[in-house]
Nucleic acid binder design. Structure first.
Lengths: 239, 239
DNA sequence: ACCTGAACACCGTTCAAGT
DNA sequence: ACCTGAACACCGTTCAAGT
């Protein structure tokens, strides 16, 4: 008689799959989508993969690197078709950025991590490439395009990052109410300008505000002196 | 004979001060300046105050609220004198924002927290008031000023938040090198525009880039259609 | 009301030892 | 090279009990 328990217990569930970077990332994305980035920890992920946390350090140097990989994976969902579409270049640019914001909107904490550890995966490169292509078709090139794309993405990332409190956290509405309340009830003696304009601070939907900001950024990028032109070469060298 | 040990040990160090919100904030700021925001935890702070972590929950509902209080305290250091100075309004506005960035620059993680939990302390209100006053002196009022000040502060906060990796974290330079390397070595076949412009992405000092961005934002705020004007009231109502 | 000890339920990361 | 158990050094927050 062969000992029945050991072989059986091995067959009771599908064989534990071998670890791989791609597999870990796939599991990470699934875990994040089901439980949020907050729960995407080395320990929780290891548990999901039926191993110990130490095993993950073979593939990722630390948690930040894991999150960066997840972010790039997610960026594969950004719609880049406007790059080759017809139509006004400004609208195509805004469509891409809006898709980027949309993708990050569900995971504001991932957007926050992107502000610190700059993404550099292939999907991020493809996004940069697409934005630069559209800017070029609008006549924006060189340093103006390079600095401009950085600024546009910075704004878009922040827009997604800010979404955090109002949607994910439990006391989201409470927080927002306290914020608006604090501004609205500002003493007109001490803060006359604030009191006069406080209502305007909260007007507009998120979409309206984004649209306005895109106009601001694009107008600014087109009208501000090109970086190199606006500064003396002495200043450039000295800082 | 009185028992000597108990009374003596009570007198060996200054009497433990009573807890108070102001005192806790002061200790928090000191702790953050000496050990960084990462070490400003409920437990570490309680240890510093010679009490248990549970005691702090009498004054702050959670860690986020503690950090918000510390942030507002720090914002007291922002130089608001340009509000009443003479000189071109654009320069005065930029001087205030630069001071704001400077203050947050040493504590990027605090800037990051400001992106999520919007500040609303008195020093933040004073900052808003000052910025609105300067904008008004430049003829920018109402919704344009309100949305504009929000955008300017958002950019400034992000600028400080991004400072994180390159200065505080241990592998700062390493990270940055990997980032620039990834962009510079992008395949010219797959990413032609990126390859063509990748050098421009890294030009300029932080100061030059900030200066350029301020020009972009101000030009944009001044030239983009005022929020209300650019959108139909139907759209305004429907979103 | 304010304060506390102790507990609950977690973290990231390293290291020596295995295969 | 890849994988692991176990340990080290921490976290935030709550709760019952005290003053």
């Amino acid at each position: 008689m062969t000992a029945p328990t050991a072989p059986r217990s091995r067959r009771e569930r599908p064989a534990k799959p071998a670890l791989s970077r791609a597999g870990i990332v796939a599991t990470s994305v699934a875990l994040m989508k089901s439980e949020g980035l907050e729960r995407l920890t080395m320990r929780r992920l290891a548990q999901e993969l039926d191993t110990g946390p130490a095993s993950l350090y073979v593939y990722f140097r630390n948690t930040a690197e894991l999150h960066a990989a997840v972010l790039d994976e997610l960026l594969g969902e950004v719609d880049l078709t406007p790059v080759t579409d017809d139509g006004p270049w400004r609208e195509r640019l805004i469509d891409i950025l809006t898709s980027y914001i949309q993708v990050l909107y569900e995971h504001p904490s991932l957007a926050r991590s992107a502000l610190v550890a700059r993404p550099r995966g292939e999907h991020y490169l493809a996004l940069l490439e697409g934005l630069l292509a559209v800017l070029k078709s609008g006549g924006v090139k060189g340093e103006r395009a390079a600095w401009g794309v950085d600024l546009l993405l910075q704004f878009a990332t922040t827009a997604a990052a800010e979404h955090g409190t109002r949607h994910q956290a439990p006391d989201a509405q409470e927080e927002w109410a306290a914020f608006t309340q604090a501004l609205r009830s500002a003493s007109p003696e001490r803060y006359p300008n604030l009191a006069a304009t406080s209502d305007d601070l909260f007007t507009g939907s998120p979409r309206e505000r984004r649209t306005w900001i895109f106009q601001v950024l694009l107008n600014g990028i087109l009208t501000a002196p090109a970086p190199a032109a606006g500064m003396s070469s002495t200043l450039r060298a000295s800082v």
